[in-house]
Design a protein around this nucleic acid. Structure first.
Length: 574
RNA sequence: GCGUUCGUGGUGUAGGGGUAGCACAAGAGGUUUCCAACCUCUUUGCCCGGGUUCAAAUCCCGGCGAGCGCACCA
């Protein structure tokens, strides 16, 4: 089904991307830094346009808004999120062969909870004769934490607080949950998106722009009521997609079906997750990813991230094989609950109104402060707190009450009043669940370029097209004076300005070298339209319009072209 | 991080102790009535740092970077 790997295509494509200013190694004149890239003049436009399409894609839902948060993040936030623990794996190196391993993996058969050990404890276990999996030696260096986050300080010198460059944008949306809840008039579901940089100090970045140390992410956090998950009608969707369900589950093996069928069969476990799989598909198709090179892979329960309950990767096939480009996870209430307890707030919840107010009978012991105060003095507060927590009321007085500090006190009848109240409860507080689609923008751009890059033979010569979707290419059209004289460059300049005055349209003029060469240059970086100014243009204001994908030409008037550029109907000229 | 192959104009390559060459691309001019044409001229290079040598792009050491394998990671 998929094309056989073409020797050298990757090299030729990478060379083109560098030569034409799409993607280049960063800091190249200083030798470069692995895992850091530049988007050049062509690539930066492509990235901006693709990112904008992503933003528009989600904002069009109506219940999703955009936010923007700092990349520098205080340590406490990332402790609560689990990143400080998760990203601080202890590593050890075999003195025999130099192989590096996660220390907790080497000793996990000796300890039930190996990843909670500190480095001294791990060193002790390692010295009990653990053999190196690759050379069977058993001499280990002492375990060192390998932090995958870039750390920094907020504030100067020793007074500075420890902070990290964010490893994901998601935490920003969680921090703003209270503001979002207010913005949406306290009604779920709603979502927030953010695009921006994320940072991970990868041990060994590889595969060009696939694994970067600084990368562009685009994440959506969608907050839902787990008891009333929003339902969308997937039955109208007819596309058949590749799914690779959990290999340990009942549906193991690759299958092809519609999104609706996958949900009905229980392969996708959550209706909102299924909906976002479908909307992810829509986006990828819109920006020019080849449908046959997309598949959705469900995480095995063993590889699931620490927070997730059902997790799907959207993988795209390209020169580097199948690459995870989007992760769609049901993060449940994990993040908000964790931030609530670490930050000691109660503001990360939502109110669920009951259909009918529930009448509830409260049977409790109301403390009598006038007696409890003088009797217990300093402990009085603790006694009142303990009384409020009582669920089973005593049969008789006096009875023994255990306080939070473990002490026990005797409660006499005079200290409390038994009160039975009937109250109407109209709803309850709960922690929303979160469905998170997280997009790796750089990886998607790579695959957009990969799928668009096409090498053909034209009159015996190698010829390259970048068949980018309209609206993704760096510019929408080039304007070419057929000759660089006789007023043609002037008219071409006018037309270029007119197009650039349109909202969201970009044109460039190119007047150097032969017309054929200029078409070729535009084809190589994926410009979909070329307008050529010739002698007739000077007489009647018409130009020839050339379509990149089949190189057909028609003649049209500039006014009509401007209109069609605006409303996206250029194709109808042909 | 280990092993391995490698690093020469913008791109692709030749040279492998003594003046760095070619092709394409790019710029200027000419020519040309729509698909990488042609002519003239021009610009741009031995990844970085040490060492050996009268002399290093070339040999040696280290670093950085790229590809691949292992490991790590999502």
């Amino acid at each position: 089904m998929l094309d056989m790997p073409d020797e050298g295509r990757l090299e030729r494509m990478s060379a083109m991307l560098r030569r034409r200013g799409v993607v280049l190694p960063a800091f190249d004149i200083y030798g470069g830094v692995s895992g850091l890239i530049d988007y050049g003049p062509v690539g930066a436009s492509i990235k901006r346009r693709l990112t904008q399409k992503w933003i528009d894609h989600w904002l069009s839902h109506g219940d999703i808004v955009e936010i923007d948060s700092p990349t520098i993040t205080p340590e406490a936030v990332l402790v609560a999120s689990g990143h400080v623990g998760e990203f601080n794996d202890l590593m050890t190196e075999c003195k025999g062969c130099g192989s590096v391993f996660r220390a907790d993996h080497l000793v996990e058969h000796l300890h039930p909870n190996a990843d909670s050990l500190n480095s001294d404890e791990i060193d002790k276990l390692l010295s009990t004769g653990i053999e190196c999996p690759s050379c069977n030696e058993s001499e280990w260096t002492s375990a060192q934490p390998m932090n995958l986050m870039f750390s920094t300080k907020i504030g100067a010198m020793s007074a500075g607080r420890t902070a990290y460059m964010r490893p994901e944008t998601a935490q920003g949306m969680f921090m703003l949950y209270p503001a979002l809840y207010r913005h949406f008039r306290q009604k779920l579901p709603f979502g927030a998106i953010q695009t921006g940089k994320g940072y991970r100090n990868e041990i060994s970045p590889r595969q060009g722009m696939i694994r970067l140390r600084e990368f562009n992410m685009a994440e959506l956090e969608y907050f839902i009521d787990p008891e009333h998950p929003p339902l969308s009608d997937l039955n109208r969707r007819t596309e058949i997609v590749s799914l690779v369900p959990d290999p340990d589950g009942p549906h193991a093996g690759e299958s092809r079906m519609s999104f609706g069928a996958a949900l009905d069969a229980g392969i996708v476990r959550h209706p909102t997750v299924a909906w976002f799989l479908a909307r992810t598909w829509d986006f990828l198709i819109e920006v020019g990813i080849h449908p046959a090179k997309i598949r959705f892979r469900q995480h095995a329960s063993t590889e699931m991230a620490h927070y997730a309950e059902d997790c799907w990767d959207c993988e795209i096939h390209g020169e580097h094989g199948w690459i995870e480009c989007v992760g769609i996870a049901n993060r449940t209430c994990h993040d908000l609950e964790s931030h609530e307890s670490h930050s000691n707030t109660k503001s990360l919840r939502a109110w669920r109104q009951f259909d009918q107010p529930r009448s509830q009978t409260l049977d409790r012991l109301v403390p009598n402060g006038a007696v409890i105060g003088p009797t217990f003095r300093g402990d009085a507060g603790a006694v009142v707190a303990a009384l409020e927590l009582l669920t089973e009321l005593p049969e008789s007085f006096p009875f023994e009450l255990t306080l939070a500090n473990g002490n026990s006190v005797s409660i006499h009848e005079s200290m409390v009043e038994r009160r039975i109240d009937t109250v109407n409860v109209s709803g309850e507080w709960f922690t929303p669940h979160i469905i998170e689609p997280a997009f790796g923008i750089d990886r998607i751009i790579w695959h957009v370029l990969d799928h668009a890059y096409e090498e053909v033979e034209k009159e015996g010569e190698a010829y390259t097209f970048l068949r980018l979707s309209e609206g993704i290419s760096s510019v929408d059209c080039v304007v070419l004076p057929l000759f660089d004289k006789e007023g043609m460059p002037d008219l071409a300049k006018e037309i270029t300005s007119a197009i650039n005055a349109l909202p969201h349209s970009r044109a460039e003029m190119d007047s150097s070298k032969s017309i054929g060469r200029r078409y070729a240059r535009a084809d190589e970086i994926g410009v979909p339209w070329a307008l050529t100014v010739d002698h007739t243009s000077l007489e009647d204001g018409s130009v020839t319009v050339r379509r990149r994908d089949d190189q057909l030409q028609v003649r049209a008037f500039v006014d009509e072209i401007l209109t069609r550029m605006t409303n996206g109907t250029m194709q109808e000229l042909f």
